[in-house]
Design a protein around this nucleic acid. Structure first.
Lengths: 201, 201
DNA sequence: CGGAGGGTTGATTCCCCTCAAAATCAGTGG
DNA sequence: CCACTGATTTTGAGGGGAATCAACCCTCCG
């Protein structure tokens, strides 16, 4: 899916990882978010009718297609579903906001630590991770484009976090060497993620 | 409205400016967005039941309160309204994403230029601005917290943009000295803002 | 075996921050 | 009328975090 496209469906990611990003005129890339199993793909593009961003697979993926018309029809029949989707969209926005704060006000180390922790939290919710660590197919280039850093600096930051005994990212595996010290260092507060659930009438 | 609060209403801003922001543990502030007349206030906080951010007036403001229950009841009676609100939420998220891209991948000059242009575009839509300029009550401190810069650097950037004959921000007034050159410089593409409107069943 | 993608490390440069100090202005009270 | 205060804007000097440039290594794969 690419920026500017219209007429496409939304999907739910069943397996694999994807990433949504925007391309700038000078060729730079800013990754907005990574999608893991269970996440919506392209919901906003459908609602706004024109995609304002691109989506790309990171690994091989499996998706379930949701046709726009079906979704809107379901809203009409089941208003509570509309509320639930609105809730899901709000939770997505909350994550983008947290990402914005990280890039705007945290240095590279806290930014990286916070990112790895948030990803771990999300993966734990769907049974793909724990406080020990998780499998992570992202390259250092992808991390750089997500965190607003250069790939070289990502490498340095990862090395220093590893040498500090807080977290090790190697061979597609994130291992939390000292979870508590890492959360402390990153000022990580997961409360903005584990939401109560949709507010239903 | 403050981070962590629950039980509050949503509002529509009738007059004045507000800003939504997050506070970090070390006291730094990241402004996520400014709200101008016509914008929703706190919609996400209501849907997620707990506010993940704070909202503060920038000027004196006038708001219209929307009670949560009324909103949800209206969704049940008028599904199209739910779709419309979902659309508005998506548009808000698109603006946050654009903000994220700006902070992640643009230097201070393009960031400032882009920000002033986007604000101008939004104000023009509600009749409070034009390609000539607009009244802007923001201080350089607020700009700094929004753009992820220091107030000192904001000042330098504004001076250089002024000396380059592109835009002048002085005494609460933004004047586009050369709109075309500024949009060119900032790679500003307003298409992500003037959306088609809600997709209705 | 050559090439591509990804990871690692060092040297240098530069953008932006921090610290510091004035200047300007609105309000406030003596 | 004027000193006094606080908020905001302005400008300078110096420092630091991250980018850029440039190698080199490894593994996988046709």
């Amino acid at each position: 899916m690419h920026q500017g496209q219209s007429r496409h469906a939304a999907y739910i990611l069943a397996a694999g990882w994807a990433c949504s990003y925007k391309l700038l005129d000078d060729g730079q890339k800013q990754i907005v978010d990574f999608q893991i199993p269970g996440d919506f793909l392209g919901l906003r593009s459908v609602l706004l009718q024109v995609s304002d961003h691109s989506i790309e697979p990171v690994t091989d993926i499996e998706v379930t297609e949701i046709r726009v018309q079906d979704l809107l029809d379901a809203f009409a029949r089941t208003p509570r579903l509309a509320t639930a989707v609105l809730w899901a969209a709000s939770r997505d926005e909350a994550m983008v906001v947290e990402h914005l704060v990280g890039i705007g006000r945290r240095d590279a180390f806290q930014r990286m630590a916070h990112f790895l922790l948030e990803l771990g939290e999300r993966l734990t919710l769907v049974g793909l991770g724990s406080k020990a660590g998780y499998a992570c197919p992202l390259t250092q280039y992808l991390l750089a484009d997500a965190l607003g850093l250069s790939a070289v600096h990502v490498n340095r930051v990862l090395r220093q976090l590893r040498e500090a005994g807080m977290v090790t990212f190697r061979d597609g595996l994130v291992v939390f060497d000292n979870y508590d010290r890492l959360t402390d260092f990153a000022h990580f507060d997961p409360s903005y993620m584990d939401q109560i659930g949709p507010l239903l009438p």
